[in-house]
Simulated scan of single mutants.
Amino acid sequence: MVLALVGGLSGCGGGSTAGAGASTGPATAVASAPVAPSATPTPTPTVAPAGEKNTVASAERAVRHYIAVVNNAYKTGDIDEVRALSASSCKTCARYISSIRAIYAAEETVLRGTTTIKKVIASGETAPGVRQVVVDYSASGLVLRKPDGSVKIVEPASQGDVNRYDLIFRDGAWQVLRVVILK
């Protein structure tokens, strides 16, 4: 996103269709007018509690934490925790990381790029250690300031987006296996 992958934290993995989300694709608009940073502060992620168990509530906390970590990574450029919380098979997670790297390599500044969670619902296990968590969210859009001072709108703001996060619990911790766009 910013779980607006920023701008919407949308993604795919295993057959999902394309949708809004942070991407390294072409910008949809370039402007020179100033854009104020998002009025909603990005929460600073906290370290996931030690001793988590494989429960519905724990899976919901893990997704909330993951989204906060991705939001923070877009804000700061620090991808280490996103990488640690993402399974190597998660294509959407890899796109978040790639997008963040590209932004900071180009010396761009994120003006807006936050996912705001409206509702989180986790399921029972779908396989041993695997849970699905559905997230209803809104995204501020991904807006960057380029080094020359111009503004680039990468992703527009959106409301009513729904993604499914497939998580795996192993060695006392959750990892995101894939992110699937539902709406």
Rank of each mutant, 00 (worst) to 15 (best):
V2P: 09
A4S: 11
G14M: 03
A18H: 13
A18G: 13
G19F: 07
S23W: 10
T24L: 15
G25E: 10
S32A: 03
A33K: 07
V35A: 10
A39W: 13
P43L: 04
P45G: 09
T46P: 05
T46D: 15
G51Y: 01
G51K: 01
E52Y: 07
N54G: 09
N54Y: 07
N54R: 04
A57H: 06
A62E: 13
A62R: 03
V63G: 10
V63S: 10
R64S: 13
H65P: 05
Y66M: 09
V69Y: 13
V69D: 13
V70G: 08
N71H: 04
Y74G: 05
K75R: 11
A84Y: 03
S86M: 05
S89W: 10
T92S: 13
R95D: 15
Y96D: 11
R101S: 05
I103R: 02
A105S: 01
A106L: 06
A106Y: 09
G113H: 11
T116W: 14
K118P: 11
K118I: 03
T126S: 10
P128E: 00
G129Y: 02
R131W: 00
Q132G: 11
V135L: 14
S140D: 04
S140W: 02
G141V: 01
G141L: 02
G141R: 01
G141Q: 02
L144F: 00
R145T: 01
P147K: 01
K152W: 11
I153R: 11
V154Q: 15
E155T: 07
P156I: 04
S158K: 03
Q159G: 08
G160I: 07
D161H: 11
R164Y: 04
R164T: 04
I168C: 12
V180R: 01
V180E: 14
L182V: 07
L182Y: 15
L182D: 15
